[in-house]
Design a protein around this nucleic acid. Structure first.
Lengths: 411, 411
DNA sequence: GCTATTATTTCGAACCTCGAAAAAATAGTG
DNA sequence: CACTATTTTTTCGAGGTTCGAAATAATAGC
């Protein structure tokens, strides 16, 4: 099934290797690149000369005079002006856009509140597109070229990253963000799931911990998940997949925001914890939103005294634990990052969570499963979105070599 | 992260492409290979000439005189005498070994009953190794060379395919079959999970249905699963993974054979159906084995009248349905093959199964999810095991080119 | 026997990577 | 301050690979 390798693909792939090595290492020398890629010095020399001539890489002045003998290494870096990407993050009542240069520095940004639940379909699409378009035009005006737009949304996207299939932040479904943005700007765009972007960001932030196999769980109003398995971001076959929050914890159980019953989220989402802490019925329709302050207050009450709040967090931990246990039956245990406001209550959740895992196939490895907590998901989502867009440029635009400069979105 | 491509890897990979094309197509012409691989005619010509000279491929006499004008195509096929592989299948109380030539024809086989539950650790290992060794020596005696041994076991194996970590067919754990077989024969060996081999076999048997994404579920005494996602066999990160039967259906629920509670298997395995049909408690320790005849008899009684048997199958369907629903939340729905004796009772299981899926994230696609039933798992397991071993030879032994003929297990 | 047609091989051009050797650039040393 | 040791980077064939075009081979139809 794999496609044949043509002769010219070889150079393309090795160029991609070099670019990737530079993006990962920051400012490596040619010798260092030869070491990490396994290519010969002569090849690295030839490829980097090309990339520099094309304005993709640049030689950086070595700052610290190395105390070593011999010819000093000359550091290579990504040329910031090679291109720019735009990242768009849409979450509940909030829209933000950032322009990032090829080296990864944010060069402009804009954000605003937006009543996502109350906004109409066209208005929602239009508002997003308008903000993007404004930024694109601003960059064009100063002679920079934006080559890629990446969007992250809280919700399910399709496998082709063209549209948002469903989201809790709006009643409208099948919103074709990518096509709309492309039509308005002429620049290729994609829409990704926010939790998948969190996973991507963790890989860049802490490669020593989040390497080939790990799981990121977003504990927020809903429960989301991003997962990397065997070094690849794991997605569904038709959608962004990984809907951990909608695995079934108890058949025919508590009412979930999705309209079904017994989902993990219906026990562990913010609204579920709130509902249980108030002693409300599991059939009670979920609230639209609960502030972070309210979650923190509930957690404080749970810590202070053994009451309904403590029990609510225990139930949440149990649901997540059994869910993880079922997941681990399929993929084996892996490091877990708990992201979002719910991570601040990890101390309340952990005992029940671990005790649930003990009752599942992952139980024997319970001790070895480690949890990390990162309360703020926003910067992670943006970072993941940025790196996804940039590495796309690395692989698909710059690795193939000097294109015949057809009608692109160039200035 | 991906390793750099050396220049000589190119030929290697394209040789692998050609061999794979021949194995898939059966008896393709050079022109046909050029078409499916995308390589040029000259390259195919050069590579196939090498492969024929090395005795890996052979020209087959075209049987049917084509009615077309022009020079007739000359068919290429795998040379049966290029090598042989041995497949070993170990299941409850049963051991079977087969020798298969490079073109996939079984050339010898042997099988016997074996009290796996009652046999000691060393005896079990020894019996398997002995039967393999006998076959290897028989082949050597007639001047054939066995280059690979693939074993399939009912149980969990490690990700490196070296040993069986745990199995319901024996009380002993961590059985190092691969190392033992290698030590006894000098031939590289692997141990794989039986359900994974079923998935591999389905791909070769019905590629039009089982292509890039599908699931095979073994309904037997226990519940196993093999899964192909994005064209790759899906395994755990540390083990063979895919322990669908041990996802949690009902927290703290029915007693499972694995010692935990509430697993899908504890509701849908043969022993669970039997237990429920008898009106026994869910805490009742599971039986060691139940004959196929007994399952068939229960199914007949369930079809004849609405009683405890019918309810038992309903409960099984519900458990599988909710399990699949949770799985589909992660990976999206995919075609399902139900394999094993339980598949004969699919008519009894389906209503509850579908109604459960309706209550999960996969529910909206319920109509589109199609089930296939294949009651006999044995031939599938052997086929998958065979193809795994043969394609390993294709990729790792023959694609790299004429090796310096070091000390291999050659005759 | 000749022509049209299709399959396969041959041959030279263009590339790519690699190893060895050369060139470049620095620190140490007397 | 010249010279040497050391390390990095570039240069320069050699060998290998794919590809397109042309040549060759093999058949059916007339």
């Amino acid at each position: 099934m794999p496609v044949a390798i043509r002769h010219d693909d070889l150079r393309k792939r090795n160029r991609a290797m070099v670019i990737a090595a530079v993006r990962r290492a920051g400012q490596p020398s040619r010798t260092e690149i030869a070491g990490t890629t396994g290519l010969s010095h002569s090849t690295i020399s030839a490829i980097s000369a090309d990339l520099i001539a094309e304005g993709i890489l640049a030689e950086k002045a070595a700052e610290a005079a190395s105390s070593k003998r011999g010819r000093p290494q000359v550091a290579l870096g990504l040329a910031p002006e090679a291109a720019e990407v735009i990242t768009v993050v849409l979450s509940l009542n909030f829209l933000s856009v950032a322009v990032v240069d090829y080296a990864g520095q944010v060069v402009a940004s804009e954000e605003r509140r937006l009543e996502t639940l109350a906004t109409g379909r066209e208005a929602l699409l239009g508002d997003c597109v308008a903000m993007v378009r404004r930024q694109v035009e601003a960059r064009r005006a100063v002679g920079h070229r934006v080559l890629r737009i990446g969007m992250a949304v809280q919700g399910i996207t399709d496998a082709g990253s063209r549209m948002m299939l469903w989201s809790p932040i709006t009643p409208h479904a099948h919103l074709e963000f990518a096509d709309r943005i492309e039509a308005a700007t002429g620049i290729p765009a994609t829409v990704e799931n926010d939790c998948n972007m969190i996973a991507v960001a963790l890989r860049w932030r802490k490669p020593e911990r989040y390497r080939n196999d790990f799981i990121a769980i977003l504990l927020s109003h809903g429960i989301g998940m991003g997962m990397v398995l065997k070094g690849e971001l794991f997605t569904g076959t038709q959608s962004s997949g990984c809907e951990f929050g909608h695995m079934i914890h108890r058949p025919d159980g508590a009412l979930c925001r999705c309209g079904r019953r017994g989902c993990v989220e219906a026990y562990a989402g913010n609204y579920a914890i709130w509902r249980n802490a108030r002693g409300q019925s599991e059939d009670q329709a979920p609230l639209a939103d609960i502030s972070d302050e309210e979650i923190r207050a509930m957690a404080d009450r749970a810590r202070a005294a053994d009451g309904p709040e403590r029990e609510a967090f225990r139930i949440a931990g149990e649901a997540i634990g059994f869910g993880l246990g079922s997941l681990f039956a399929l993929i084996d245990p892996a490091p877990v990052a708990l992201v979002g406001i719910g991570a601040t209550a990890f101390d309340l959740i952990e005992p029940a969570l671990r005790s649930a895992i003990d009752k599942t196939a992952g139980g024997q490895h319970n001790k070895a499963i480690s949890f990390d907590t990162l309360p703020n998901e926003r910067p992670l989502i943006r970072e993941g979105c940025t790196m996804t867009a940039l590495t796309f440029l690395d692989r698909e635009i710059f690795a193939p070599g000097p294109a015949p400069l057809s009608a692109a979105g160039a200035a």
